[in-house]
Computed example of a mutant assay.
Amino acid sequence: MDSPPPPAALAWASELAGPAAGAWAVQRLAGGAHAATHLLRTPDSSTELVLRRFPPGDRAPAYEARVLAAIDGLDGWAPRLAGADPDGLRFGEPAVLITRLPGHADITPACPETAAEQLGRALARIHSVPLARLSGLRDGMAASASVTRSAGRGPAAPVLAAHADRLAGRPPVLTHYDYWSGNVLWQHDVITGIVDWSGASLAPRGFDVSWCRLDLVLLHGPGTAEVFLTAYQEAAGEKLSDVALWDLFALTNSYRTVETWVPNYHDLGRTDLTAAKLRQRHTEWTEDRLARLPENSYEPCDRPR
């Protein structure tokens, strides 16, 4: 999937963009391992589209097209759908074409705490979208259940299993499902948009919060995750319940896979992070979260005896 788009893909983009787009300059965009992502730009830069190509048989582009139609650009904070070929009929790979948002991903900010504040406020904005405009989105907690079964191991797994219903019962919001620094675009140190909506769902707000906090811990340390949470709660106008339990949700679901995130981090400039470092930070964050649980509050007493 790292290969350049085939000529048939560029012909498809030209059909959708109109006669002015007779030729394209192609640039690979960094980040992400699920899809091959390329910027298509006309020579005069009058038209810019982003082509996302997926492995044959992948159903993610079909769902991403549905999500992008539902969120309708999020007032400029999300791409708009320009075209979709979820069955790969045009050139053998399922794909979507979307509008380009200004900015670029940045996981090496000069001031991680300032970036974390913006990440928190941006997420609160996403979570405030009225549910009435989000018909057809999946249940995010149900969708993650298979991940929990396959990747959900580690010291926090019994606690999480005992209280899965507690988390799933929280009120749903628009959830990005993969809200981390690499899916946020920046321009002049200001967030300009959020990309990669292929997993967006309806789920409790703690879902996105916990995954972004885990990412910030791995990148910059626990202090940055706390700055993010404070900014999020202030912007949302309410405190998040069961923060430590939600953190354990993200930790448990990433227990077996955290080392595989190394290529994503390297692609965006954090070549200092190794699999060993990610595992160490993941373990330390797990131990911290378990220690922060109120005594006896989450005792997994309903496990089979």
Rank of each mutant, 00 (worst) to 15 (best):
F54C: 01
P263L: 05
A105N: 06
W180C: 07
G88S: 07
G18Q: 07
P86C: 13
L39K: 13
D139I: 08
E295K: 10
R41K: 12
R305K: 09
L10N: 11
R149A: 15
A143S: 03
A116R: 07
G18I: 07
D288Y: 08
Q280L: 12
A9G: 13
L51Q: 10
I71S: 08
E299H: 11
R256P: 00
A116D: 10
V209D: 07
A200V: 05
Y255C: 10
V243I: 06
P79I: 13
A69P: 00
P294C: 04
N253G: 13
R125L: 14
W12Q: 10
R149K: 10
R90S: 11
F207R: 08
R289V: 02
W261K: 01
S46A: 15
P300L: 04
D208S: 08
E117F: 01
P4D: 11
V209Y: 05
L214S: 07
L216S: 01
L134V: 06
A11G: 11
L134S: 06
R133M: 02
R41Y: 01
E64R: 04
W12M: 06
D2K: 09
P112W: 09
H188S: 13
G73T: 12
A203C: 08
L229N: 09
A82R: 15
T283Q: 13
V159A: 03
P86K: 08
L268W: 04
P43E: 03
L218Y: 02
A236N: 02
I191E: 02
A115G: 09
H104S: 15
L202F: 05
Q27Y: 04
P294D: 06
A151H: 15
I191M: 08
D139G: 09
G199M: 04
H176C: 08
D2G: 14
V159M: 02
A151I: 01
E287Y: 00
W197K: 05
G83D: 11
P56F: 07
D196N: 13
G73Y: 04
S45M: 02
R28T: 09
P304D: 08
A105D: 02
D272A: 14
S3K: 09
R125V: 07
V96C: 11
A231W: 03
A115P: 08
T257P: 04
R28F: 03
F91A: 13
H266I: 08
L131W: 10
L10Y: 09
A156D: 06
L219Y: 01
T274H: 12
L119K: 01
S241I: 00
R166D: 07
H38M: 00
E284L: 15
P204Y: 03
A110M: 01
T42V: 14
T230D: 08
G206D: 09
P43G: 04
D215V: 03
A203T: 03
E299A: 15
L248K: 05
V67R: 02
A164M: 09
T148P: 00
M1W: 03
C301E: 13
P294M: 06
L137E: 05
G32H: 04
G22M: 00
G31V: 10
K277M: 15
G206A: 09
P102E: 12
G73P: 04
S150Q: 14
R121T: 15
G31T: 09
P6W: 02
L97I: 11
A25I: 04
V209A: 13
R53Q: 13
R205G: 07
W261I: 00
H104D: 13
L160N: 04
G223F: 10
N253A: 09
P130T: 12
L119F: 06
P304E: 10
Q233W: 03
V217K: 02
W77L: 15
H163D: 11
